[in-house]
């Protein structure tokens, strides 16, 4: 039996596949400048997706989450300098980020609300200082380089474009599966009411730490690819909280607690700030600030959140009407 829901589901899948195919071939039609912008959008969408899993779904705002971005970037750089190929270096960097997230997760995820957010900021700062001072391994405050890719810039652009695109798509698919699974109900119950969740049989500690590890996994891969893409990284850049504040803004604009939200949010914010950069460079910070305030006030559920709310309310209205006419 094919229900209406199934039909809609199939239509959505076709739309998504079509969009992915378009994006795969898009670099053939646009200049290097736009390829770079899209690469950044995919990267931000990935990080924003991770913030969304933690904050939008689980209610824990990991303000210092950029630590995993930095760890991913630095571990990749170090391992690649030791001669490992990129497809081994980045997974190993990712593994180290996961281990860090689990070790830190047990104590820090006991903290709630503000305290959790601030403790992660503190941890990020501490890790950054370690990276700045472990000069022999990390190159210190002046940063470090990745091996240079021997290829024409055009090829390099496309290489990173496709890498970030794949990362965004895989991240979003995994998030979709996670939040709609039984485990996902556990995650959402923690946001809804952690004590009630625990007394309903949800192992909240395990759920929180695992969720943070998933978020660390994808963020650290983004960090590794970013570092290789930039070919040079410095601590105050890859541990910059700005990555997270931007990702939070993207999540809010697109719609927290939805899977498409962070992707749309990344597109909107990056496009707007690109325009702001080129058009009103002097005002771009203020423009971003004002835009954020406007969004938070007028579309608090974000673009996708507002749309899904509308659809849900229509359904309830319809079912009420149906009830009236039937009864």
């Amino acid at each position: 039996m094919v229900t209406q829901d199934d039909n809609k589901f199939n239509k959505n899948i076709i739309l998504i596949i079509a969009a992915v195919i378009i994006f795969i071939f898009l670099p053939n039609f646009i200049s290097g400048y736009y390829i770079r912008i899209f690469t950044a959008i995919f990267m931000y969408a990935t990080i924003s997706q991770c913030i969304n899993l933690m904050s939008g779904y689980m209610g824990y705002l990991p303000f210092g989450h950029v630590m995993f971005f930095g760890i991913g970037a630095y571990m990749s750089a170090i391992l690649m300098k030791l001669g490992l190929p990129v497809f081994i270096a980045i997974p190993m960097a990712c593994l180290s980020a996961i281990i860090v997230s689990i070790i830190l997760g047990f104590p820090v995820l006991r903290l709630r609300g503000h305290y959790f957010a601030i403790a992660t900021i503190g941890m990020n700062g501490a890790i950054m200082t370690v990276v700045q001072n472990a000069t022999e391994i990390t190159g210190g405050a002046r940063g470090t380089t990745f091996p240079i890719i021997m290829a024409s810039p055009d090829v390099v652009y496309r290489y990173f474009y496709l890498a970030m695109l794949s990362l965004m798509v895989i991240t979003s698919l995994v998030m979709h599966v996670v939040v709609n699974s039984k485990f996902g109900y556990g995650i959402r119950s923690i946001k809804a009411n952690e004590d009630a969740a625990n007394s309903m049989g949800i192992n909240t500690t395990f759920t929180k730490v695992t969720t943070w590890a998933i978020a660390a996994l994808f963020t650290s891969i983004a960090g590794g690819i970013y570092g290789y893409w930039m070919s040079f990284i410095a601590p105050d850049e890859v541990f910059d909280l700005m990555f997270i504040t931007n990702s939070i803004i993207m999540m809010l604009i697109g719609g927290a607690g939805t899977i498409l939200g962070p992707i749309f949010g990344a597109f909107i914010v990056e496009t707007v700030s690109e325009v702001a950069w080129s058009g009103f460079m002097q005002y771009h910070l203020a423009a971003l600030g004002i835009a954020t305030i406007v969004i938070v006030f007028f579309v608090p559920r974000g673009v996708i959140g507002t749309i899904t709310d509308k659809i849900r309310n229509r359904r309830i209205e319809l079912s009420k009407k149906a009830e009236v006419t039937n009864g």
């Binding site: 959402r188 119950s189 946001k191 809804a192 009411n193 009630a196 607690g257």
Partner: peptide, 9 residues
């Protein structure tokens, strides 16, 4: 006694 619904669901 003081209900603890899963808010937002």
């Amino acid at each position: 006694q003081v209900v603890k619904p899963l808010q937002g669901m």
